[in-house]
Amino acid sequence: MKRNFETVKRIVIKVGTSSLVMPTGKINLTKIDQLAFVISSLMNKGLEVILVSSGAMGFGLDVLKMEKRPTDIAQQQAVSSVGQVAMMSLYSQIFAHYQTNVSQILLTRDVVVYPESLDNVTNAFESLLSMGILPIVNENDATSVDEMDHQTKFGDNDRLSAIVAKITKADLLIMLSDIDGLFDKNPNVYEDAVLRSHVPKITDEIIKSAGGAGSKFGTGGMLSKIKSAQIMFDIDGQMVLMNGENPRDILRVLDGEKLGTYFAKTK
């Protein structure tokens, strides 16, 4: 199926922790700079962009010189709180180099569940985009909880990015990952695994081909990406799952090159 993004006006880009933090735990400055260049270039062309960024935990571990994620929830929240400040500070500096203003929106699930707060956050997005400002979104890890009577966590930022795309009526969700896309089976196990170029609907076979959890710094896995694609299908949107190794590949994708896996209904 030909990929045609000529009518796309509003894009949500999701970047995972593995794209921002190197396996050593150090921040990948080159990758973040490339991402800022690409997003600023798209905005200069008149596109509206929202960035959903993981990384608070990874940044926090780096700032606090901790080698691994703490097991205690309160400590996790503290590390994420420190990391969120460090991450936004770096984003602000690097995007400023490309003359792009950024803002921060931290969400919990209850914000998008209750109509009044949903209206407020939707208005915030619209105001920022109309002013040419890049909203950078993350889950509010320092306060979100996941208890039976008070669930405020989205689960992971794959799902969060799809929900943000839904409430902002985005045309396209681009999900950057540490894999090339969706394969018919696990490419880390099977050498003959084949990359799926186009997925027109989420079937049982597609779900079964999904693996487990993601990197040691992040929380998402392939199943969460497939569930995100289903949310995009539900709103007649499009999604591209692609490798985030070179953020400039986003420009190639928008030019119609068949990189990654394209999730879109067949028309």
Score class of each variant (00 low, 15 high):
Asn4Thr: 01
Met131His: 08
Lys26Met: 11
Val240Ile: 15
Asp110Asn: 12
Pro70Glu: 14
Lys185Tyr: 05
Gly83Ile: 05
Lys227Gln: 14
Val121Met: 04
Ile32His: 00
Leu176Cys: 10
Gly58Ala: 13
Gly221Phe: 04
Arg159Phe: 00
Phe59Gly: 04
Lys265His: 12
Val164Ala: 07
Thr108Ser: 12
Ala165Ser: 04
Ile167Arg: 01
Asn138Pro: 13
Leu61Arg: 02
Leu254Glu: 13
Thr108Phe: 01
Gly212Asp: 15
Leu47Trp: 03
Val189Tyr: 10
Val38Tyr: 06
Arg3Asp: 04
Gly218Glu: 06
Asp119Lys: 15
Leu47Pro: 02
Asp236Pro: 08
Phe183Asp: 03
Leu128Ser: 03
Ala142Gly: 08
Ile235Asp: 01
Met242Trp: 14
Glu191Phe: 04
Asn120Thr: 08
Leu160Cys: 03
Gly25Asp: 03
Met148Trp: 01
Thr261Pro: 04
Leu182Val: 08
Met43Arg: 09
Val240Glu: 14
Ser130Val: 02
Met88Leu: 13
Val8Gln: 10
Met1Leu: 10
Lys31Ser: 15
Pro70Lys: 08
Arg196Thr: 08
Lys227Met: 12
Thr168Glu: 05
Val102Thr: 15
Thr30Val: 14
Glu191Asn: 09
Thr7Cys: 09
Leu223Gly: 13
Arg159Lys: 12
Leu182Asp: 00
Met22Gly: 03
Glu67Met: 08
Ser18Glu: 12
Asn157Ile: 04
Pro135Asn: 05
Ser228Trp: 01
Thr266Gln: 15
Asp110Ile: 02
Leu251Cys: 13
Met57Ile: 15
Lys68Thr: 11
Gln84Asn: 11
Ile73Glu: 06
Met242Ala: 15
Gly83Val: 01
